[in-house]
Design a protein around this nucleic acid. Structure first.
Lengths: 196, 196
DNA sequence: GCATTAAATTGACAGCGTCAACATTGCGGC
DNA sequence: GCCGCAATGTTGACGCTGTCAATTTAATGC
């Protein structure tokens, strides 16, 4: 907690400002100079903490994936049997996307991400491991467990991810109640998760 | 076929160049000036045919969605029963994404798309209508058809879309055969589509 | 207390999207 | 067949962006 140099933990301030901007103005509105401006620093200040825009975006994505993994684990912990845990993770997945839409989209924008950064790589492993691990738990004692688990994990993950992405991009509107699309979306997700 | 003005259908040439660039260099490499440069026009030439970058991107997305819809319809036409048609559409969905990755990602990048453009709006309706219509065909005579169809459509669409997106972003690598990820991905998709 | 190193600023550069002013080309009316 | 007009394309400028090099400021290590 050593009060650092000139500003007072500029690195954390930049990350916080970046998250606020991306959730408010979308990814297109997230700019290196804009973030610096927001915290009252010079336009090149971020260079010392993150090398370039890819660095800032990647570190912010790491923060996002860590929180993402925590949410999913917390949701799973409130359920008893494996299938309920998996459904709770799916719900947490979509709820995270709805709560922090800009951050969520940034986390899955591969082109501006350096996945070899340790913080990001580790956070991604933890988030995806939570999901795939929960799928594997529903296949205990299954004869052809390996193959079934792989397909099941890919299906569960693709389903909730596709739903979240399409939802954030207003692509599912034709299927949703025009009056309350947000809450209806979660109802629709429940139908998807619990149908045959 | 009237040979137009100075260039010779500059509009079509710009769209073709844009598609080549986006599939080669990714979305980040698609620039208004770069497209103009590619076809030997001045940097502001695109303004006459598309108002701005959003216009060019939207018209290119319209081209993409039209081709996308055609591929899905052609795939469905080769199958007899409704369930096979739906699976064929899912396969065509992912194969399109793999064949034209840049174009596919651009088509689902809502922030740079003007969905009110007639060409884009119509092409999107046709593509998504193909998919949801095929789902509805599997629920003929179903008692609670409306609700079941909605959830089924959302699930099928989310599944193939999430799979395509995660695949293009190298997110599914942990689940894929490292030796031949592309072909293995289609095998995994088949497992997903045909599992219980 | 001083040298060294980290942190932050300043100024510059090229590339970008966009706009306004201008030049060129092809078309329809006579 | 010519002429005015509208469509098409070019040029130049503006502010914005990311990035780099040079410089200044502040905190740390000895």
């Amino acid at each position: 907690m050593t009060k650092p140099y000139h500003h007072g933990d500029l690195r954390a301030a930049l990350l916080a400002a970046a998250e606020e901007i991306v959730n408010r103005d979308g990814i297109a509105g997230l700019t290196l100079r804009g973030v610096a401006r927001e915290v009252g620093a010079s336009h090149a200040a971020p260079k010392n903490h993150f090398d370039d825009l890819t660095g800032l975006v990647s570190e912010l994505a790491a923060v996002g994936f860590t929180r993402f993994a925590n949410r999913m684990q917390a949701a799973a912990a409130q359920q008893a049997n494996p299938q309920d845990k998996l459904n709770a993770i799916g719900r947490a997945y979509v709820e995270f996307a709805l709560a922090d839409p800009g951050l969520f989209q940034l986390m899955f924008r591969g082109e501006r991400l350096d996945k070899t950064r340790p913080a990001l790589h580790e956070a991604m492993l933890r988030a995806f491991g939570t999901l795939t691990g929960s799928v594997a738990a529903t296949h205990e004692g299954d004869p052809d467990a390996a193959r079934a688990t792989r397909a099941h994990a890919a299906r569960a993950w693709s389903m909730v991810h596709g739903f979240a992405i399409l939802l954030l991009d207003d692509r599912l509107n034709p299927l949703l109640d025009a009056g309350a699309p947000r809450t209806d979306a979660l109802a629709l997700l429940d139908d998807m998760l619990t149908m045959g």
